[in-house]
């Protein structure tokens, strides 16, 4: 009877803290350590900087969360960011396309990659890891072909403004990330689509037998992931005013790390946007904090690895305890 643990309850701040207490405490400890060793950490401008640096990761994490909630994974996200970023840069810089065409093209490229993933995984039953490994390869290859291995420079102020505008010091890309997070939260908590994602991640057969169109709802999230990646590529190319063939390399790892730290179960069906948000912050604070302290970036990987391991171990222990 003591097993009243809730996995997902919409709303309610109290429940949110209770559910994510482990990682929230972890985040607070981390912030405290960094703030004490580097006073500049807690300055408003650094906090804005931290949010800005992690905005694209947050957008991609929203996509990764959908994949992992379904008990699957999408490792093509980084290459999709690269592909749409480079195609965007190519269109605007080399073809002289209008900004709105370029924006739509970036998102469409993402959606197309996502659709390939989704069809392969959902309808053709290719395991998600394999399908997205293939599209990762294809995407990266196309990125290199289109860019010709050259960094494409963008000299279009209207386009670069899409990544470089700020409102009272808050960068526009933080706004994008916030919108995507809110969108994903609403999707998962307030729509049937979201409930079906949880259902088919928790038990695909039960969902199918309950009349859920599992093929469709297994496929559509990948399209959404692709669109998020397309947005990521758009933002990066606009922000840097350039796009290189290496854009997005390794993005999938940071995204998986944040989602897993955020308490999402790799076997699917369990996870929240709120938890993921904290996961993103944890990853962000580690990177930003260590950069501020001037600690070699190679150590950042070591710390990230340790924190992922600790987060997962805590999750496993907690599950073990609630099982008795």
């Amino acid at each position: 009877m003591e097993n009243t643990k809730t996995v997902r309850v919409p709303g309610k701040a109290g429940a949110y803290f209770k559910r994510n207490i482990g990682i929230i405490v972890g985040l607070i400890i981390l912030v405290a350590i960094v703030a004490i060793s580097e006073p500049k950490f807690l300055t408003p401008s650094n906090i804005l900087n931290l949010l800005r640096s992690n905005a694209v990761n947050a957008i991609i994490c929203c996509g990764m969360l959908l994949a992992i909630l379904m008990g699957e994974i999408d490792i093509s996200v980084g290459s999709t960011v690269g592909l749409s970023g480079v195609i965007g840069a190519f269109l605007i810089a080399n073809m002289g396309a209008p900004v709105w065409v370029t924006v739509i093209a970036c998102l469409a490229v993402g959606a197309a990659v996502g659709a390939v993933n989704g069809v392969a995984i959902s309808y053709l039953k290719v395991p998600a890891f394999v399908a997205t490994l293939a599209t990762q390869c294809i995407g990266r290859g196309l990125t290199e072909i289109i860019s010709g291995g050259v960094t494409i420079r963008i000299r279009n102020d209207a386009y670069t403004a899409l990544g470089n505008t700020s409102f009272n010091g808050v960068s526009i890309i933080v706004v994008y990330a916030a919108l995507v997070l809110i969108f994903t939260w609403v999707l998962l908590n307030k729509t049937r689509f979201g409930y079906y994602i949880y259902a088919l991640g928790g038990n695909k057969t039960a969902a199918e037998y309950s009349g859920v169109n599992v093929k469709k709802y297994n496929m559509l999230p990948y399209v959404l992931i692709g669109i998020f990646c397309g947005l990521g590529g758009l933002i990066w190319s606009a922000r840097l005013g350039s796009a290189a063939a290496t854009l997005g390399e390794g993005f999938e790892m940071d995204a998986i790390a944040a989602v897993v730290i955020g308490g999402t179960s790799m076997s699917g069906g369990v996870g929240t946007v709120g938890g993921t948000f904290i996961g993103i912050l944890i990853i962000g604070v580690i990177t930003n904090g260590l950069n501020l302290m001037g600690i070699n970036s190679f150590w950042q990987n070591v710390f990230k690895g340790i924190i992922i391991l600790v987060a997962v171990i805590i999750d496993v222990l907690r599950k073990g305890r609630s099982k008795q």
Binding site: R8, G202, N203, V270
Partner: peptide, 9 residues
Amino acid sequence: SEGLILKND
């Protein structure tokens, strides 16, 4: 395995 989503409420 076919009726319920045990991870959910």
